[in-house]
Design a protein around this nucleic acid. Sequence first.
DNA 1: CGTCTAATAGACCAACCGTTCTATTGGAGC
DNA 2: GCTCCAATAGAACGGTTGGTCTATTAGACG
Lengths: 194, 194
Amino acid sequence: MKPSPTREALLEAACVLFYQRGIHATSVDAILEKAGVARQSLYLHFTSKDGLIAEFLKVRDERWRGAMQRYIATAGEPDQKLLAIFDFLASWFAEPDFHGCAFINTAVEYADPQHPFHQLSAEHKARVRADVLALCLEAGLSEAEAVAGQLALLMEGATVTEQVTRGSQAARQARQIAEILIYRSKGETDACVN
Amino acid sequence: MKPSPTREALLEAACVLFYQRGIHATSVDAILEKAGVARQSLYLHFTSKDGLIAEFLKVRDERWRGAMQRYIATAGEPDQKLLAIFDFLASWFAEPDFHGCAFINTAVEYADPQHPFHQLSAEHKARVRADVLALCLEAGLSEAEAVAGQLALLMEGATVTEQVTRGSQAARQARQIAEILIYRSKGETDACVN
DNA sequence: CGTCTAATAGACCAACCGTTCTATTGGAGC
DNA sequence: GCTCCAATAGAACGGTTGGTCTATTAGACG
């Protein structure tokens, strides 16, 4: 892979615009203008707009999951790391140009489950769930599979709630639920503590 | 309001297509064809495509919340009604042409929070949350506000999870979490009362 | 100096979009 | 019969879309 600055500018502009405005709502012209690049250059480095979209989804997956892992790494105990997921979400939601999960958005824009981009979104979600599962196993939770699924569902719920209704404090809400689930899974009997 | 059959056909076609394919992806032509109606008729009964979209969002809100209320009404005890929410979701997800929540989809398609359609989506979510809150109060839960928010978050999470990854059994998962939350909230009630 | 290559500007294309206009039809009510 | 009105078909509009084509430029390398 040769790191062409032109290609990089195109991809970076596409990442920002696709995320902030949506894919369908972002024209090739808008990408070219933001990247400060000539029309032909896009078709020199990518097969088409769809090729650019595929590349966007790829780097978005890497960056987002990387950011989460990096954030979580700062937390201490294994079960604190699980809770840190939701602190990560909170800091993400606080970004002024937060526009939800790019992959949920993509799955919505490409409603047909058979569509390649919809499937790429599903694959991203599977990877995230795998990451969460690894953390659950690290924490030595019983029924780690089940808890990982539950936490993933909470992540989706928080993200979408905050996207539709900004300022809903959804991350904190999800964290509280997660706390309960994790506490239960550690094998203790239910007590109305806290 | 005179129930013009032409207007009704247009609105019905729009409801189906907007939901199944998305709003941006549905052309005026497609709506006309499905409705079996002339081009001009649309602009005779609606101000524009946007007017038709607004009407779609209105009837969708009424129908969906109505369906949920009707489903829940079949359940017995007040806390069984809360759990019935997630049985309702399960039956919804099982529909072959389930394509997620129309309002989440709309909020995604109109990413700008200031956009009228995005705001209509947020208002729908507020109404649903109010409906859930009423059920929580009926069930005599302590911290009904908080629990209603939690349940609403679970509903969002389940819906989106199922939309992106069909067959994920997200409704059942969400129901299990809801059970825990409701049980806890009832326990605190007893503790407070006693 | 000449060559090769990446990048440029900008015209151009066919297709589609939402919307408007014109002219015509057919049935209901007086 | 006549009027009125909803509805029709279909052309036409201006604008935007993704993509292609052509011709030109600027710089690196030998």
